[in-house]
Nucleic acid binder design. Structure first.
Length: 254
DNA sequence: ATGCCTCAGCTCCTGAGA
């Protein structure tokens, strides 16, 4: 089976591209981030016609996440139980024997800012919850837009961007603390091309010059790791007219 | 050309994204 994550930067704008992508890539599960729409606008019918069950969790203007699945998703939970949050950032559900968590991690804007402090507290809240989730659901996938790079290999200009947002030691501490819970970066389980990224700035012809970062990740639990058969970043949609600034990441499980 | 885009909404500018 295949699972994927994609930050679409407005589902209103990108819905046709999502439907096209699902038609060409009929994955079993797709989680979306940055819907930027309220739940009354969520295109349930379009996803049903495409053959997917769907659950959205949105808000006006910002954030918003969704989970789409070929088979029905059950036990759907919105946001992080135990962490109070005004923003729609997390949706999780059971799909088959998997617990799937789709997340839009806070951006953080700039180290030292209020938004950065919120990012740090959110990461702690996420970790405390995921620790308990792993005990209840050994086969777990945590995927989405993490807004954090693991290391220099994930950054087009590691020297120039050192200690800037997505690349700070504090953010990477929290990312590695998730790994320490017993999660594994599916992408790095396999040989990958150098300078592989999942996001490119709209400005400065970032995609054409491959000036990007790998900030969209799929982490799998230890119980699931032996089933992982591959993980790829699909840059094809970035070549569309009016693309999202993120590319989908896809993992294949046995 | 060290090349400043894209989206939503308090919409013809601003805030935010990353």
């Amino acid at each position: 089976m295949k699972l994927a994550t994609w930050n679409v930067n407005s589902l209103t704008v990108r819905l046709p591209q999502v439907l096209d992508w699902l038609s060409a890539n009929p994955v079993d599960v797709l989680v979306l981030q940055e819907l930027k729409m309220t739940d009354d606008k969520f295109p349930t019918d379009a996803f049903t016609q495409a053959g997917y069950h769907s659950h959205g969790f949105g808000q006006k203007t910002y954030n918003g996440v969704a989970i789409l699945s070929r088979t029905p998703a059950t036990n759907v939970v919105r946001n992080i139980p135990g962490f109070s949050d005004d923003m729609a950032r997390v949706i999780s559900a059971d799909v088959g024997d998997l617990r799937v968590i789709g997340a839009y991690f806070p951006n953080g804007q700039e180290p030292g800012s209020d938004k950065f402090e919120y990012k740090m507290s959110w990461l702690k809240g996420l970790r405390d919850w995921v620790r308990a989730e792993l005990l209840a659901h050994p086969k777990l996938v945590l995927m989405g837009d993490y807004n954090i790079t693991f290391d220099d290999d994930d950054v087009w200009d590691p020297e120039g961007l050192r200690d800037t947002i997505h690349c700070t030691d504090e953010e990477r501490y929290h990312l590695n603390a998730l790994i320490a819970l017993g999660l594994h970066d599916a992408y790095r389980l396999f040989p990958q091309e150098a300078k592989s990224y999942s996001w490119w700035d709209y400005r400065d012809a970032g995609f054409r010059r491959n000036r990007g970062m790998r900030i969209d990740h799929i982490l799998v639990s230890s119980a699931l790791k032996p089933q992982v058969r591959g993980c790829v970043i699909d840059k094809t949609p970035r070549k569309n007219e009016r693309p999202s600034d993120h590319a989908p990441v896809v993992v294949e499980l046995a």
